[in-house]
């Protein structure tokens, strides 16, 4: 299986904001359980519809989406429960976890993203 090291950044998108008060909606799921990547990166790794993103703390499966303006060595995940599942405490001295510029690896997968309820269920174990 092909793997690639990338920098992960998370942040707001208008769709994520539009449905932020409706976290269990399909629209919020579509807006946030998604990984935006450069088209060349998708081709290089033979990613079809879904991508697995791994960090030092956890892995998550997301829908892969092409974005033209993003550099090839960068991936963008809208802020929310899916992005934050793979983020570690890494606060330095400021009390602020690193939500941007995080080291990650990505790989193709046939798995599907978890629904919100199932994702939150992982914290209970």
């Amino acid at each position: 299986m092909k793997k690639k090291r990338v920098k992960l950044i998370t942040g707001r998108t208008i769709e994520q904001g539009m449905f932020i008060e409706h976290k269990t909606s399909k629209e919020y799921f579509d807006a946030t359980a998604t990984c935006f990547m450069n088209e060349r990166l998708i081709k290089e790794l033979d990613i079809e519809d879904y991508v697995k993103v791994n960090t030092d703390i956890a892995s998550i499966v997301l829908r892969a989406e092409r974005e033209k303006g993003i550099p090839k060595d960068l991936i963008f995940i809208p802020m929310g429960p899916w992005a934050n599942f793979i983020l570690n405490i890494d606060i330095g001295l400021s009390g602020m976890p690193s939500f941007k510029g995080v080291d990650a690896t990505i790989e193709p997968t046939d798995d599907r993203p978890l629904e919100l309820k199932d994702l939150i269920g992982l914290y209970k174990g």
């Binding site: 976290k23 934050n84 599942f85 570690n88």
Partner: peptide, 16 residues
């Protein structure tokens, strides 16, 4: 607020 959506993994584990 919704910290379970916007905090990081180790913090949410404690919230659980």
């Amino acid at each position: 607020s919704d910290p379970v959506a916007h905090f990081v993994n180790p913090s949410i584990r404690r919230l659980a």
